[in-house]
Design a binder for these strands. Structure first.
Length: 556
RNA sequence: GCCCCUGUAGCUCAGUGGAUAGAGCACUGGCCUCCGAAGCCAGUGGCGCGGGUUCGAGUCCCGCCGGGGGCACCA
């Protein structure tokens, strides 16, 4: 159960009753909201409903609060309801109910924190989708972690989630990649081939060419160049993709589907999408090209879908891709995580989806802002073309997947972030990653000790948990389902690291205050109760780490 | 020039229109005689500037200033 829902319900009942019996005049309905007050003296939950109602009811807010509060029905969860100037109603939770939640958490086990918000609704999260023209780097890694965690959170919230990577295996950039590879390949055998204009200059292209040369020999040299480029390109593409997949795996990011752009042409979705747009009179021939008339839909400008050469643009492919997502595969919602450099593409993509007859609200685009990488005072600029980049494997080598995931996850996507490699390395034993993992390891070691001493705490009585430190830990733990719900609703997984840290803090404080495995005579029952609490903390913290894709170490 | 994001503590960042704005790092001072001091407790320190909406603004609106990104028949 999510306590917030209960409190909301109680409030709504009280409001309705107050209006029925004439204690309050019927007023315009207001959204009833509750929040967690900052200060503990204001209880576990609070509402400012009376303040919101004051205007429409033309009454003093405190007076509204005083009339409303006594009408709030008693509940097994609520200890006390009271009013506070200028017009708050506060709620505190019953200690007995809180301690009983330890049993609930133990019962739910690994699934603790799950909620049924999604009811099996099919949602797609498309993320990373880096062109396979080069290795994946730091900026991509951020989007990768955000997408993966968002998908995890949505799953926990009861959605049926598909993680998808869109492979742009057609288009100009891939052509440039193929031609670059062909040039490097020729160079391996001493042929003075020139790199194409706008080619990919990074050393990895040389490595790739060498690797292919070593495996395939010089057979592409004797082919007609066009054929060689094509054959070589196909191999190079798979190699790059394999490497990207491997790098992402090391970051613990996995995809259900690697969707290939070229299938959109093979299987007719491109044609169908274009036909649909044409039927809707959204297309126009102009200057030899076919345009999407997005200005008619309020956009700043029109966009080319089919070039004068007859070759579709990236945008056209993306339109077809979204046709495939919504119409063919019938996702009820699609979430795309794009890098900041795609920001200008957002509104026309939505316009196009609308033009296809799909409610644009079903498409949600999250823009993941830039990552600035810093090594001490030295700023590192990532550029694929020049090859001057910090790749994901390099980053993982330096800081490891856990800090990577934690830091990328802790920032909201719309704010740019700075990642100082030196700091992350130097302070690796002092950063929040280890703080949280340390808490988990500490918990594990207590449970190990209990096991060693053969303490069977299955009959522990959780009602003995009354110490403020015990209760504040439980208070924190019971918030997980509510948090999952709100993260899934707002698509904001970045609250997870902060919550995990709060849980860790509450645990460390409890640990400081309360001896768990005590040898003091007469405390046997308390020991068992506390072991249940510790076990519940292991579950809660473990779940957080699992959702974040981080390791939950038993010892460190 | 236009569009999007952003400006919160010395640094990196949280912060559903509500009560005394939080965390980590850094700095200062305390705490290990049975479970892990990678911990706990206390202290120092802040909403870019100016208007507006509101009972109430870090949060919403307008303007200015600073930072980042975009404005291709590239993706």
């Amino acid at each position: 159960m999510i306590v917030r829902h209960l409190i909301l319900e109680l409030l709504e009942q009280a409001l309705q009753q107050a209006q029925e019996v004439g204690l309050l005049p019927p007023g315009t309905p207001t959204d009833v909201t509750v929040e967690h007050p900052q200060s503990p003296e204001h209880g576990d939950f609070a509402t400012s409903l009376p303040l919101r109602l004051a205007r429409s009811l033309r009454m003093n807010p405190l007076e509204i609060a005083r009339r409303l509060a006594p009408l709030i029905p008693p509940a097994e969860v609520v200890e006390r309801v009271w009013t506070e100037p200028p017009g708050f109603i506060n709620f505190s939770l019953k200690a007995g109910w809180l301690s009983s939640q330890v049993e609930s958490i133990l019962q739910e086990g690994e699934t603790y924190g799950n909620v049924d918000l999604g009811r099996g609704e099919r949602v797609q999260v498309e993320f990373v989708s880096v062109n396979p023209t080069g290795p994946i780097h730091v900026g991509h890694a951020r989007g990768a972690v955000q997408g993966d965690a968002l998908a995890a959170v949505l799953s926990a919230a009861g959605y049926q989630v598909t993680r998808e990577y869109y492979v742009n295996d057609a288009g100009n950039q891939m052509e440039a990649f193929y031609n670059s590879l062909y040039a490097r390949y020729q160079q391996v055998f001493g042929h003075p081939a020139e790199m194409p204009q706008g080619g990919y200059m990074g050393d990895y292209m040389v490595d790739l060419a060498r690797a292919i040369a070593a495996k395939e020999g010089e057979r592409f040299l004797s082919m007609p160049p066009q054929e060689a480029v094509q054959e070589l390109g196909r191999i190079g593409l798979e190699q790059m993709l394999g490497r990207i997949r491997e790098d992402l795996n090391r970051l613990r990011v996995h995809f259900d589907i690697w969707f290939r752009e070229h299938t959109l042409y093979q299987e007719g979705q491109y044609q169908q999408a274009m036909d649909l747009l044409r039927q809707g009179h959204h297309l126009m021939e102009r200057e030899g090209a076919t345009w999407f008339v997005s200005t008619a839909l309020g956009e700043d400008k029109d966009n080319v879908l089919i070039r004068g050469s007859g070759v579709p643009t990236y945008f056209a492919a993306d339109v077809a891709y979204h046709y495939n997502k919504f119409v063919e595969r019938e996702f009820s919602r699609v979430i795309n995580i794009w890098g900041a450099d795609h920001q200008g593409h957002v509104s026309r993509m939505k316009a196009a989806v609308g033009a296809l007859g799909i409610d644009p609200h079903r498409l949600i685009i999250i823009i993941s802002q830039m990552v600035t990488l810093r090594r001490g005072d030295h700023l590192l600029r990532a550029s694929k073309r020049t090859g001057d980049l910090v790749t994901l494997p390099e980053l993982l080598e330096e800081v490891g997947p856990d800090p990577c995931r934690y830091f990328f996850l802790a920032r909201s996507p719309e704010s740019q972030m700075e990642f100082d490699l030196e700091l992350a390395k130097r302070e690796s034993s002092e950063n929040p990653v280890y703080y949280i993992q340390y808490a988990h390891a500490r918990i594990a070691s207590i449970l190990r000790l209990a096991l060693e001493r053969q303490i069977d705490y299955s009959d522990g009585d959780v009602s003995l948990l009354t110490d403020p430190a015990e209760l504040s830990l439980i208070r924190k733990m019971v918030q997980l389902p509510e948090l999952v719900e709100s993260m899934a609703t707002n698509l904001e997984p970045h609250h997870l690291p902060h919550y995990a840290q709060d849980v860790a803090t509450a645990f460390h404080w409890f640990y400081q205050q309360c001896r768990v495995v005590s040898s003091t005579p007469g405390e046997e029952a308390l020991v068992k109760a506390r072991l249940k609490l510790v076990k519940a903390a292991a579950i809660t913290l473990g779940r957080c780490l699992q959702l974040m894709g981080m390791e939950a170490p038993e010892q460190m």
